[in-house]
Structure formats: structure tokens, C-alpha cells
């Protein structure tokens, strides 16, 4: 395959990086939710807050970062899908 293609390599690297962050937020934080609950944020126990709101905002942020980076990559490599 054209693994030397820089556009695809960079896309994959970005995807992998964001995916690792996503896995950490989704699974690691949830696994330790009871431990996180010893702290408070905006009157919520932290573990509860992350599951009910915090993670959701981070998900939105991850997609936003992906879209912005991909827009730049597209411009850099002149990728223009119809």
C-alpha cells in the first residue's frame, strides 16, 4: 500500500491519538468513578459529574479538534472532496 502517503499517515496518527484519549476518558475514568467521587465539582461528586456531563463535553471537544485538524490537513495537501 501507499504507506508513504503523508496525508493518510497523518490522518491515522491523529485518529489514533484522539482514540487513545477517548478510551481513557470513557473507560478508565468510569472504572475509577468511585475513587473520583471523593472530590467535588460544582456540588457534584466528581465521578458522577464526569459520567453525567464532563465526559460528554470532552467527546464534543474531541470531535471539534478532529474536524479542525482535518480541515488543516485537507488544505495542506490540497484534498478537496467534490
Amino acid at each position: 500500500m501507499h504507506l508513504s502517503e503523508p496525508y493518510w499517515i497523518k490522518t491515522r496518527r491523529l485518529t489514533g491519538l484522539l482514540l487513545i484519549i477517548w478510551i481513557t476518558i470513557t473507560f478508565l475514568l468510569s472504572w475509577y468513578a468511585d475513587w473520583l467521587n471523593q472530590w467535588q465539582i460544582l456540588d457534584f461528586p466528581l465521578g458522577f459529574y464526569m459520567a453525567a456531563q464532563g465526559s460528554l463535553f470532552i467527546f464534543l471537544l474531541l470531535i471539534w479538534i478532529y474536524n479542525r485538524s482535518m480541515r488543516r490537513l485537507d488544505a495542506e495537501y490540497g484534498i478537496d472532496d467534490e
Binding site: F48, A51, A52, L56, F59
Partner: peptide
């Protein structure tokens, strides 16, 4: 708290869709 799995699951999936 146990029910929050639905909240995370049904929103977190969209990151997979996007990426």
C-alpha cells in the same frame, strides 16, 4: 449512577462515528 452507562455510551459512540 449505574444508569449513567447509557448516557456515556449513547454519546461516546459519536466519537467513533466521527473518527
Amino acid at each position: 449512577f449505574q444508569g449513567l452507562a447509557y448516557v456515556i455510551g449513547w454519546t461516546g459512540g459519536f466519537v467513533l462515528v466521527a473518527l
